[in-house]
Design a protein around this nucleic acid. Structure first.
Lengths: 193, 193
DNA sequence: CACTCTAGAGAACGATCGTTCTCGCCGGTA
DNA sequence: TACCGGCGAGAACGATCGTTCTCTAGAGTG
């Protein structure tokens, strides 16, 4: 097994186990067993558990945002439709059987108070999401598009945490309806959807 | 020291330390030191750490909701004003120096995947908050008041997690503005505020 | 005073965990 | 063949932690 493959398998195992059980609920030996990578190679790839946790979060940030905003770009021909498509993506995410909320929110809750690196990665992730939403609202041609983006972002965050803790996906449809109202009130032309 | 006082001091220490560092970041000896209650009495009050964690969360649920909705009742003479007052309460909470988000969200992120008791308490808490918001929207005299309550609740949740991770309190004002828009769109008479 | 009961301080125990070390095996090379 | 370097398996180490146990001192009671 070459080093890149070992690293990928470790990150795959880390993503699955950390997300499912929390960081402190997964031991290095669990990761060895789940990845098939020996402890010696594991510590060659990641000198400490903290390094592995941060690499896991950074990779997840990139993939998660790409998946969300690629979906939006592909499922809407207007900025307004693209913004509403965010909530459709959330709905299908919430329906996945192993959905357990936002990995960054969960990691922040677990480690944010004691691990500044984790807190910073969570903050960077949330900032990046909000920035990409702002990019979409900027194309609506409405005044106060930044304030609108902040409000739409709150609906995204609220839907994720509500769906995670309630265990039901309906928060996505509530968020979508609220977003539709806010878009209309902000002056975005309705698209009929 | 009588048993009730020991219990109170333990719960006070637990609330402060668990909220600040996360459950797994606090040892039983830390709680002993912070509370001044000996380990022997600690285990007389709470047979296991899990029992203490759940008691901490239950007490916090009662106090937190009472504080939020008492403030709403006292700072609004109409249902609409009371609903908007929720976000003012959030703003002052977010500004507290040791604010670190929702204790239930944080505990769910840390332990929800492995401790069903914690997951259930978090779910009960969120359900209770939403129920109390629904109680307020029911007095607005608008159609679809339940859907409106769900949407206002998403703004509350989104504001809490956003303020926690960003470290800034501005999410409360964004949430309030969005709530105002949603209330108006739902047909609630403006109060001028 | 003698006895008993309780509580506190802190040691001890057993489990877990992050990290490192040992050892034996195998592939490449002269 | 003889050597060598790196690898995997898993033991070992040291720290932490939840929980229990020991020992001692003191308060209450006759």
């Amino acid at each position: 097994m070459n080093p890149e493959e070992a690293r990928d398998r470790l990150l795959d195992a880390a993503e699955r186990l950390f997300y499912e059980r929390g960081v402190q609920g997964v031991g290095m030996d669990d990761l060895r067993a789940a990845s098939g990578v020996s402890l010696k190679r594991l510590y060659q790839c990641f000198a400490t558990k903290r390094d592995l946790v941060e690499a896991y979060l950074r990779r997840r940030d990139e993939r998660w945002r790409a998946s969300l905003f690629d979906h939006a770009a592909e499922h809407g021909d207007t900025p307004r439709a693209q913004l509403l498509a965010l909530y459709d993506w959330l709905a299908s995410w919430f329906a996945e059987p192993d959905f357990r909320g936002c990995a960054f929110t969960n990691s922040f809750g677990e480690l944010g108070g004691t691990e500044p690196g984790v807190a910073r990665i969570a903050r960077d992730h949330k900032d990046a999401v909000r920035e990409q939403i702002t990019e979409l609202t900027s194309r609506l041609g409405v005044p106060e598009h930044r304030a609108l983006a902040d409000q739409l972002n709150l609906l995204v965050e609220g839907a994720i945490i509500t769906a995670a803790i309630s265990g039901t996906p309906e928060a996505a449809t509530h968020a979508r309806a609220a977003a539709d109202t806010l878009l209309t009130a902000a002056g975005a032309r309705p698209t009929g959807s």
